[in-house]
Design a protein around this nucleic acid. Structure first.
Lengths: 329, 329
DNA sequence: ATGAAAGCGCTAACAA
DNA sequence: TTGTTAGCGCTTTCAT
């Protein structure tokens, strides 16, 4: 590997001049510039980015924390983010917490060791109080996920509204015994959905049987289990509001296997409007989340932050959310 | 941020001693070691990894090139890889080529600028001849994808066999007019599948109508189009071999919409055994690829390479492939 | 317009 | 067992 010094020698100039050519600095005579460029080509010179990082104290790398990449919601989000990051010469490091607090903290330590310039939190396992100190080391923003105590830029949807319109839709369709699937922790996004859900129930004067609440439901397999559980109940729900299309798809698939009619015997409402929602049979009615916009906007906010533009304090961007009706309700 | 020098001063030792403590070097007196550790804690010291990189000429980072992360096959593969990489203290940079030659080359340039220690090629857009020079800069291995001219470690499946047993299955089920969906370039994996497909056809003495070959089929939407195209043909196939579960799922979903009976009017064979294969209705018969194993083994091979163990020359690992029968055939 | 020199934070010969 | 010293490759004052 040739270094900046090799180029300087070959071109008969100083390292400084080579560096200036590299960084499009003004005040470099055209003649020398050409000389330097010729030398670079001849030596197949490529600047060592680690040296640049050390000198410039910046890494051109951002980390995005998600639970797991194989969740289609997050893989689509990361696809959009990575494309946009690449357009701006930024590297994206994907960090999967796998729903584990400890792993999340290990990833956050990347900012301490100066390995990344910023963090996009698209999931949060730890309590915000245990995380906020990391904001001293690099900008952290929320994307989709959020915590009301956190005073950091946040790009998200109105999850309360999403859950509210979804639940209301079920009620308007005539369903009266509505079950709910959600994550274990009642914070941020999950808490807002819960509020929206119960608000709609309350307004309609509907009661809720605590047995209808299913926790820690994330995967297709969880959905299958939920359906079987429901079938075994004496007070059986006639509809179910899920926190994700994956769980909903599991329910629908298991229903087909067990010859349970959807939506006649059970209506199913998804969340996310993932690709899978259009592929299951019957098609899944679900709450659309504009993943493209949310991903792009998050990267934009992060880039602005890194450029010293934008506000590091709380700065909320809320994107539209709406219902997509198919045949499962 | 405190540096190694601050720690040294506070502990009353030299930078070298601090560095030795950091790297578990032998020959550090217990007393001084304790002193150093106390100073580190007091200053909340964290080593700057960029400086370590520059000095050690290594980045602890590997890149994995894939077409796009939102393809469930690749998102699952990356999930497995990232988990294993994290266990070994390695960062994984996800690089999406988006089926674009130029983008692929841009990512490969990361090795030139010393930003990564190694590359896992899980897709290849460019001709191998245009890529092989990069092997001079860092170890490159193939994962799933491959090129017979490349003399690099390769972890893959026997795609010929996969296509052969899949096609044979269709034939044994009584289908005679078998269509095929595949990518545009007839190289590596795609070429081997094609050979397996035609070998099975030849052995059964079946003929193939060129109209039954559908190229550049990657997405669910492509599958939908393929089905509509088939319905419009006068010489209509009675089965279709697809290169991916996504395309197959698109076909099945569109068939449901248009009331085409699967498998009676058309049998559908997928490839990958993605989660979606079990969710569509009817369930998709498909060729299982052991993504977990392939991902883990690739990381292992890469780690061995980075440690100077293992052979940089061609070194083929072939994993088992088999048919999973559901209801679509 | 150009260059000399200092230094980003760390590790590893080498010497003691 | 410990410290001194010399860089890794680059950018950026500060002179000229």
């Amino acid at each position: 590997m040739s270094t900046i010094e090799d180029v300087a020698k070959l071109a008969g100039v100083s390292k400084t001049t080579v560096s200036r050519v590299l960084n499009d600095h003004p005040y470099v005579a055209e003649g020398k510039k050409a000389l330097v460029q010729k030398a670079m080509e001849e030596l197949l010179y490529v600047p060592n980015s680690t040296a640049q990082r050390l000198r410039k104290q910046t890494t051109q790398t951002i980390a995005v924390l998600i639970p797991r990449i194989s969740n289609p919601f997050f893989s689509k989000m990361v696809e959009v983010m990575e494309n946009m990051a690449a357009d701006h010469g930024l590297q994206l490091v994907v960090c999967q917490t796998m729903y584990d607090k400890q792993r999340e903290l290990v990833y956050l330590d990347l900012v301490k060791t100066k390995q990344i310039d910023g963090v996009i939190l698209a999931s949060l396992e730890n309590d915000w109080e245990d995380v906020k100190d990391y904001t001293n080391f690099a900008p952290i923003i929320f994307c989709n996920e959020y915590d009301d105590r956190a005073k950091v830029p946040t790009v998200r949807l109105n999850q309360f509204e999403g859950a509210y319109i979804g639940t209301k839709h079920l009620i308007e369709k005539g369903y009266r015994k509505i079950a709910k699937c959600r994550g274990a922790n009642l914070t941020g996004l999950v808490a807002d959905r819960q509020r929206g859900f119960f608000q709609a129930l309350d307004e309609a004067g509907l009661s809720f049987d605590n047995d209808w609440m299913f926790l820690e439901t994330q995967l297709v397999e969880d959905g299958r289990k939920v359906l079987r559980k429901m079938l075994s109940m004496k007070n059986r729900p006639d509809a179910v509001f899920t926190g994700s299309d994956e769980v909903a798809a599991g329910i629908i698939s298991e229903a087909a296997r067990l010859h349970v009619k959807i939506p006649d015997e059970l209506a199913v409402l998804g969340f996310d409007n993932q690709q899978i929602a259009a592929l299951v049979n019957p098609g899944l009615t679900t709450i659309h989340q504009p993943i493209d916009q949310i991903g792009k906007l998050s990267i934009k906010v992060m880039i602005d932050l890194l450029h010293g533009e934008g506000n590091v304090d709380k700065h909320l961007k809320e994107l539209p959310i709406y219902l997509v009706e198919r045949s499962s309700t």
